[in-house]
Computed example of a mutant assay.
Amino acid sequence: MDFYPVAIEKLIEEFAKLPGIGYKTAQRLTLHVLNLPREEVVGFAEALVKARGTIKYCSVCGNYTDSDPCSICSNPNRDNSTICVVEQPKDINTLEKVQEFNGRYHVLHGVISPMMGKGPDDINLKNLIKRINDELKEIIIATNPNVEGEATAMYISKILKPFGVKVTRIAHGIPVGGELEYADEVTLAKALEGRTEL
């Protein structure tokens, strides 16, 4: 067992609260921070406090922003006829790196998960419905291909049907560079279901 001063143990505990960080990694991070020059530690702490104090959710799409609306929602060059629905703000960043989508986004801030006690009222669905207008032609659902993501996609599709807007789902299947022998049955089934003509 490690015996550190109380201040070090407290810092280890705080790092360990971060997702994906266990005790050993928290311990390494803590000891690394303690060996940094004071100015770097102060800069790190100030960056944390500033980000927590200035970053908020965009009132239109739900993305992280420091100005409202966010830079995507306020960009007049974006396509207003398409909205891509994602689970979390980080998903927008992932999609933007591809540089293939020029529409708008909508962040659900979670998925429907009865096991976790999250229903439709616990995610950002009402604001998505408010965004439906005559200009909107398609809503692309880009939730993760797991049980909760699929259930959420099906629910969204069902509630949007009466609005007459086209609802599509991103394709799933074998990743580029992947090999069939390593793909699971669900992935193979989705790949066969979503096949395209050459």
Rank of each mutant, 00 (worst) to 15 (best):
N133W: 02
E39G: 11
N133G: 05
K50N: 06
C84G: 12
A16I: 00
D134L: 04
K56N: 09
N102K: 14
L192E: 06
T30V: 04
V167C: 07
P89E: 03
K158M: 10
E14V: 04
D122L: 11
N133F: 03
I159A: 09
M116D: 06
G22C: 06
K90G: 00
I156C: 09
L31I: 14
R78G: 02
S74I: 10
E100F: 14
F101Q: 04
R131V: 07
I132C: 08
I83D: 08
M116S: 11
K190E: 11
R195I: 08
D121I: 04
S67M: 04
Y23P: 07
V111L: 11
H172C: 03
K17I: 02
E181W: 10
H106R: 08
N35V: 08
L160W: 04
Y105T: 05
R131K: 15
V86G: 05
K130W: 00
P89N: 01
V42S: 12
K161C: 01
N75G: 10
V147W: 15
A16R: 03
V85K: 04
Q99E: 09
P114Y: 11
V107H: 01
P69I: 05
Y105Q: 02
T82G: 10
S81W: 11
G62P: 02
G173C: 13
Y57R: 14
K50W: 06
Y64D: 00
E39Y: 14
G178Q: 13
K10C: 01
K90R: 15
R38S: 15
T196K: 12
T82Q: 13
L198H: 02
Y155I: 09
K90N: 02
E138Y: 08
A151W: 15
R195F: 03
E46V: 02
G149D: 14
P162D: 00
T82L: 07
K97C: 01
G103C: 07
R104N: 08
A183Q: 06
K17N: 03
H109L: 12
N35M: 14
E181C: 09
S59Y: 08
I156Y: 14
I159E: 06
G22S: 07
L160E: 09
R28L: 00
Q27D: 01
K161N: 03
G20D: 00
L29V: 05
I132L: 12
V33L: 15
V186E: 04
R78Y: 13
E14F: 01
V111P: 00
